[in-house]
Every structure is written in C-alpha cells, then in structure tokens.
Design a protein around this nucleic acid. Structure first.
Lengths: 219, 219
DNA sequence: TGAAGTATGTTGAATTTTCAACAAAAAGGA
DNA sequence: TCCTTTTTGTTGAAAATTCAACATACTTCA
C-alpha cells in the first residue's frame, strides 16, 4: 500500500488527511487492492453497489451498454480518481453501469459501509472522508454537466468541436492529445464512428484543425 | 418559515434533523425565502455559485443554453428538492447553468459557506448537513446517469420510448402524466420539437401508446 | 364571448446520420 | 520480418433529423 502513497495523496477522497494517518486509516477501512489487465471488467453492471473504487495506476472507463448493444462511455477515471462512489453513497443495491480497465490498472476497493457508518474504532477521519466524498460528488456532477453540454449538440461536427475545445481548455493549449481512440470518442460523443472519422477529415481539409492519430491541434 | 415545515421535512438536505432543531438551524444558516413567477429567472448563468436553492413550492428547471441558442433541460426540481448545490460544493466561482421557475414558486436560499464551513455558534448540525448533502449529490449523479441513458439513444423514437418507460416505472403504472410540454420534452430529450410531435403521432397510429395532452398510456 | 397569443401537429425539402462494406494503415505477436 | 488482427478512413445508399412554414387546437384575459 505504501508504494501508492503518492497517488493516494492526490486522491480527492483523502484530501486534508496527513500521510501518517492515511495508511492507518486505510487499514481501518480494510482497503483491498486488485490488478486488472486492459479491457478487463472491474465492476459488471448489476453487481452490488458495495465498493468504492480508487484508481492507483492506469485508468478505467465507466460505460453503459443498452438493450441494442449501443455503448456509451460515461466517464474515464485516471490515477487518483474515484469511481462507483455515487451508487454506494446513494445506497443503490446494484450498480447501473460497467467499469472496465482502459489499460493495465491497479485498483483499490473500499467497502462503502466502512466510510458511511461510523467505525467501531471511532477513528477520527470519517467526518473528513464524508466531506471529501461530498466534494468529489459535486465535481462529478459538474463533469456530467460538461458532458451533457457537449453531447446535447445536434451534429457530429458540433459535438466534436465542443469536445476538442474543452480538451484544449483543459490542456491550456491548442495542441493536445486525447485519451480516446476513434471508437471510444464516438461512444463518448454518442455518434457513429465512421461519421466521426469523416468529420475529422473534413475539418482537416477545411483547415480548421490538424491531427495525427490522437494528437490534435486547433487552428 | 414555519409554514414550510412540512416540505422541509421531506427535503433530503434536512433528513434526520428533528423538527424543533430545524427552524433553529435555518436561522443559524441565515436562510432566506424568495418568490418567483412562472418563467422568472432564479439563477442566471454566470452568477456567483454562492447559494444553494431549496424548492418550497412550485418547481424549477435547470437549463443550459448554448452559443447557438439551443436549450437543454438538465433537470426539473420540485417541492422539497435542492438545486445549485453542486456548484457551491465544488466551489465553482460561477454557475454554468440557468435556473428558471417552471411555475410560481417559493425558493429558500442558503449561503453555502454557512453549511460548508463550521459556524461560529458551533451548532451541531453541520456534520449531518454535510452527510445529507453528500447523499443528495450521489442521487443527483445517478439522475444524470439515467438522463444519459435516455439521451444516448440515437433516434427520437428510442429516446421517447426510453423516457416514457422510465416515467411509467416511476409512476408504477403504464398510465401517467408527464411534467413537460412538447417543447420542454424535446429540450430534455435533445431532439426537434416537430419531429417529436410527429413521432408521438406515429406511435399512436401504430397502437404502441395512447395520449391526450400530457397524459400517456403505454399499451 | 371573442380576440390574441401560445402550443401542438403536419408536411416536404434539405441536411445529416446511420449502416454496411471495403480499403488502407497501424499495431501486435511469433 | 512477416503474418494476423485491429484500427481508421472512405464511400454511397437508406434512414432519420432538422428546418421552415403553416394549419389547427388550446389558453388567456380583456
């Protein structure tokens, strides 16, 4: 667990908790670590909403797959980020999404009941954890607002440009890499992969952007 | 304030707080009440993310309007429900949405800093409030998951049927009323109003549903 | 009640997306 | 390196959406 201390310190769930306290607390919370190869399932849709996940290394995708097999990528969580916390905190029985490893990843699992209900050791961190969880969930809510702002556009072109503009803002530069391959970007933007490829080519021909693989530059 | 006690008790923000404590606490939080006529703006996009809103009567819509004037309805909050809490909790400077009264509404405003930072009176409810806020935000996150599940469908028909199926589930019956007029439903589903009307007519002709105004029945 | 304003339904043309199929390019493994 | 697999780009036809315009129904309020 010690080797992940640097990541854990960046994790919003553990903000304002001292190093020495952190490891002790994780023991108290009975945190477990698991490793997942790329594409492997961390949580399957319908499994109990019992554990909160923390990405220690790698990254995971939170996805929904509907009746017809259409897949939506809801979010991508990277190192130090938390996932599946909303289902545990809202006390859903089952999680309504799947979580898969986007690359080889180490994941820490915390039984949510250890956070939500005061532990018998009465260690003093629950209040801080709850507060951190609240902030984390507020940030997640805003993340969904941003996603909806992008996907509510009506055309592939507008969705793509809105997405790229947001990535450029995040990167602080008009030149940046994106995390998605083409199919994944289509699943995030909720458009057709082939139409997305075509639109990228069109924007390039029009001189609006340049790109090579996953690197983009807005002109 | 007393006249709203019944509503406030239903409000998730005040769960597990005794009646007698509630009014005292609201005074401590310096809660204010405002009234808004239908269509009036409760919060304008870009205004400071300082206040948390609680619907005492009526209902509000949380909306985004993009550069081209396209309007998305993100959520509708009715009596006892909380809004704009995510922006305050995440400590955004400005709120990225607008909130408008959907009907004549009374709204309670609470300065978020009074909740997030321990008050000098050191009244004992902050921990419970933070916990309630966390739960509320978890539920909101799940609400967005559901919205995305609906709007990620590719056709007007699929979006509409997914929406109606969810409303039927919520109502516990195949016969139910919806809160939206046609334009609002289109803004929620992110489709064209005229196309939506056409699709409703088509589903009716196909014998898949019956409807009169805002009453629907799935057959 | 009547008039004005708003909401809903309908339609056809233009635009866009989806779908399927395939070619080309890139990545991975033996 | 060569072969296989995966990813990406391209294309045309079919399907669906958007847009604009208008008719009708419904509301509101004087």
């Amino acid at each position: 667990m010690k080797k992940y201390l640097k990541i854990l310190k960046k994790c919003p769930l553990f903000a304002n908790i001292e190093d020495e306290d952190l490891l002790r607390m994780l023991k108290c919370l009975d945190a477990k670590i698991g490793s997942f190869d790329k594409k492997y399932t961390v949580f399957a849709e319908g499994s109990p909403a019992k554990y909160i996940g923390v990405v220690l290394s790698g990254s995971v995708q939170v996805i929904q797959v509907d009746y017809y097999g259409n897949r939506s990528i809801l979010s991508v969580m990277g190192e130090g980020e938390v996932f599946a916390e909303a289902f545990a905190c809202a006390e859903l029985r089952e999680i309504p999404v799947s979580v898969i490893a986007d690359e080889p990843s180490d994941i820490m699992f915390i039984d949510s009941s250890h956070i939500l209900h005061t532990c018998h050791n009465n260690c003093g961190f629950h209040q801080q954890l709850i507060f951190n969880l609240m902030k984390d969930l507020a940030v997640k809510t805003i993340m969904f607002h941003q996603r909806i702002e992008i996907t509510s556009k009506r055309t592939t072109r507008e969705k793509l440009l809105a997405y790229l503009a947001m990535q450029a803002r995040r990167a602080g530069s008009n030149s940046f890499d994106i995390d998605f391959d083409r199919q994944e970007l289509a699943d995030y933007l909720e458009v057709e992969r082939s139409g997305l490829s075509a639109e990228i080519s069109k924007l390039r021909r029009e001189g609006i952007l340049e790109n090579h693989k996953n690197h983009f530059e807005l002109l």
